[in-house]
Nucleic acid binder design. Structure first.
Length: 737
DNA sequence: TGAGAAGAGTTTTTT
DNA sequence: ACTCTTCTCA
């Protein structure tokens, strides 16, 4: 017991040992949040207060759930297997499988990932003959998910205009299609579970009594429905309900665009009359120069719950600032710096290159590649999202559930077996007429389409029969052969990597079997097709790692968003420019700038020892050279914490969008790197593209483009926060700044 | 059926 | 500029 609490600071200890009451832990970056969460669980169990099975711990990502289980494994004498630790979606999946009948689902329901969902929506629009120009599938997907995440079913949507009414109609049709096909999307997992608990009193009471403690990680990222879900399980905070222990950081709330509702923190505090609000402000990660910069930046936000990070580990090095001529120039400098760091003995894996948007990785990758430096880019396709894996999974899904039309449509003609678009249309008509799935409608067809489709149905039936006695990995192996997928990729001269991935799928199946098999009483002895359904759910819920070779010592490249939760000795933060970071689109959103600033806060607090920030005077974006002002966030870092690395003659005198910013040098030499892209002839008044100018009303800006001549001469100026403007030179009074 | 043209979209992302 | 999707035609 005392061992558990050793090395915790007073606030951490207080949080871990709170009585069974609701609590809100405001855990700053690097303050030991995961440690507090896991130690709290271990302490509750070890002090004999509750049974391990009475604890529910919820995370957002599988990674976080796994990490928590792993840590608990080392802290508790019991196996953490039986604990209810998982993601919102994983736990909902578990509940829905257990109570599938009460939830109105078949036991072997399938889970649609986002791509599957989009395909299902496209198919729906086609079936209903809806113009997908008027109802773009992506937009409709967003609408449907938005409603579900707010807990709103079609009948409850408030639709005041025709367009919305039509979308609601499609939402309803989509639900019907999912139900017909026995598939459930991500948002549905949560909503269906919520409704199950809400409507079924015995089940609700059962879980309300069972869970005495509910712990939530990254609480600032919960959406409306997830909070309602928690409230329901905790019996709305009533006497006798579970104690809700929520850990989060409002300053690191960066997912509003996908529905996260940081207001849940305030609501929780109010609605549950939370008496225990504990701030974890001591940071164990970064030097104080870095923390001071982060604190200074985030102070510009209003509406915070309030926190100030500190450390006793010393000031460390200044924050290094570099101004480049162009994006290419910036990348070249970063790579040179990385090379010299590696020469000095720093490990590449401890160096991270962060950027606001994925498009920025290109230049960096190019330079790294040329320099022969190993690197790893986060993001992009994950294992279970790859084309060949999706194809294989579609066959498996048809075995588990032939009514899965999404899977059917995906592989009915892959590998090609002479089933063209015409046959599919005929089949879709039949499925409407007979009100059945595509698979079930095949016997109603005659003629050529009926013959070829009949062959396909027979293939699936054969597969189901042949795989019945097989163990999971052998089952997958058999399907890969019999479906023709293996042969197809063998014949493809670029299919070698895809073949490897298919083999990797076999490994995944074997691993899954091994893991499930070791849980006593759960999967062992299950018929192979039931285990197959579990494996498919696993594939949807946990799409796998983004990239392999994690062991390699490689420089880490990722967006600021994906860097959340990670830390590195050395961090390069590039592209600190108005329009890029903060992103221009954020100006259109309510409180968009504050979210961008939180993103900046997340970026800065990733660094342990050294932080580099850089920006470029010009940057290639969407095929055009843009001239950006440097980011206001740079201005928000106190100058005394910084050290400028670019030579004075390379710098512009911009005061950023917010003006101010003192000790900078005047511009002189014009950038060499971006010279090609600008016209050599100068504009009237000695102005040039890329020139910094001042306007009486809009303030400082950069000339981005020019048009016309003489009295018609116009220039486009990027004023940063004030926007992009076309100005007639004869009218606007522009001064060189 | 597959290759090549044409067109659209291009902030951030987990489940 | 580049990528991904859809269309068109042999």
């Amino acid at each position: 017991m005392s061992q558990l609490l050793a090395n915790l600071n007073p606030e951490q200890t207080q949080a871990v040992t709170l009585p069974p009451q609701h609590a809100l832990i405001l855990a700053g970056a690097g303050s030991g949040k995961t440690r507090v969460l896991t130690t709290r669980i271990a302490w509750l169990v070890q002090s004999g207060q509750v049974d391990a099975h009475s604890i529910l711990a919820v995370t957002f990502t599988n990674k976080a759930a796994k990490e928590m289980l792993a840590r608990l494994g080392t802290m508790l004498p019991i196996s953490p297997r039986g604990l209810w630790v998982g993601t919102f979606h994983g736990l909902c999946n578990r509940l829905l499988r257990a109570h599938h009948r009460d939830a109105g689902l078949p036991q072997l329901f399938q889970i649609l990932d986002s791509a599957d969902q989009l395909a299902a929506i496209k198919r729906l629009l086609k079936t209903l003959n809806v113009d997908d120009e008027k109802f773009p599938p992506r937009e409709l997907q967003h609408f449907i998910n938005g409603q579900k995440e707010a807990g709103v079913r079609p009948h409850a949507v408030e639709a005041w205009d025709d367009y919305t009414r039509q979308r609601v109609q499609l939402y309803q049709e989509y639900e019907a299609q999912c139900q017909r096909e026995s598939v459930v999307d991500f948002a549905e997992l949560l909503l269906r579970t919520y409704e199950l608990l809400e409507r079924n009193e015995p089940i609700r009471r059962h879980y309300q009594r069972r869970f005495r403690h509910i712990l939530v990680d990254e609480f600032q990222d919960t959406n409306v429905l997830q909070y309602r879900w928690l409230k329901l399980l905790a019996d709305n905070g009533k006497e006798g309900g579970a104690a809700l222990f929520c850990v989060g950081d409002d300053d690191q709330s960066i997912y509003r665009f996908r529905g996260a509702e940081v207001g849940n923190m305030r609501d929780f505090e109010r609605e549950f009359r939370v008496q225990n609000v504990i701030r974890l402000e001591q940071n164990y990660r970064s030097r104080s120069n870095i923390l001071d910069a982060a604190n200074a930046i985030i102070r510009h936000n209003s509406d915070r719950l309030g926190k100030n990070l500190w450390t006793d580990q010393g000031a460390g090095e200044p924050i290094r600032v570099f101004e480049a001529f162009s994006d290419g120039d910036e990348a070249r400098w970063i790579v040179e710096e990385v090379q010299s760091l590696v020469r000095d003995g720093h490990s590449r894996a401890e160096i991270a290159l962060l950027y606001r948007s994925n498009a920025q990785s290109r230049v960096l990758e190019h330079r790294l590649f040329t320099a022969g430096i190993p690197y790893r880019v986060y993001g992009g396709l994950r294992f279970f999202e790859r084309q060949e894996i999706k194809h294989a999974l579609a066959y498996l899904r048809l075995i588990a559930n032939p009514d899965d039309d999404t899977a059917f449509a995906r592989v009915v003609n892959f590998p090609t077996r002479g089933i063209g678009a015409r046959s599919i249309e005929v089949l879709q008509d039949a499925s409407r007429t007979w009100n059945g799935s595509l698979y079930a409608s095949v016997p109603h067809l005659s003629g050529k389409a009926g013959t070829s489709l009949g062959h396909f149905v027979r293939l699936i039936e054969d597969l189901r029969r042949e795989t019945e006695p097989l163990a999971l990995p052998e089952l997958v192996d058999h399907v890969l052969d019999r479906s023709g997928l293996r042969d197809h990729y063998k014949a493809d001269k670029e299919g070698a990597e895809r073949l490897e991935n298919l083999d990797e799928l076999l490994n995944a199946a074997a691993n899954f079997l091994a893991e499930q098999g070791s849980v006593p009483g759960e999967a062992s002895g299950q018929p192979s097709h039931a285990l197959l359904a579990d494996f498919l759910a696993h594939a949807s819920l946990e799409a796998g790692d983004h990239q392999a070779d994690q062991g390699a010592d490689a420089v880490q490249l990722m967006t600021v968003h994906s860097s959340k939760g990670l830390e590195f000795d050395i961090v390069f933060l590039s592209g600190l420019e108005e329009g890029l970071f903060p992103h221009e689109n954020s100006a259109l959103e309510r409180d968009g700038l504050e979210e961008e600033r939180r993103l900046m806060y997340v970026a800065v607090t990733r660094a342990r020892e050294r932080l580099y920030v850089s920006f470029a005077q010009s940057r290639m974006l969407h095929g055009q050279t843009r001239y950006n002002l440097r980011s206001r966030f740079l201005e928000e870092i106190p100058v005394e914490l910084t050290k400028w690395l670019s030579p004075p003659n390379q710098r512009t005198a911009l005061g950023g969008a917010t003006g101010g910013g003192g000790a900078y040098f005047t511009p002189s030499a014009k950038p060499a790197a971006s010279r090609e892209s600008r016209p050599s002839s100068s504009l009237p008044g000695g102005l040039r593209i890329g020139q910094v100018v001042k306007h009486a009303k809009f303030g400082q800006g950069v000339i981005v483009a020019a048009e016309g001549g003489g009295s018609d001469a116009r220039v486009q100026v990027n004023f940063g926060a004030a926007g992009m403007k076309w100005l007639l030179l004869a009218v606007a009074k522009l001064e060189a700044a």
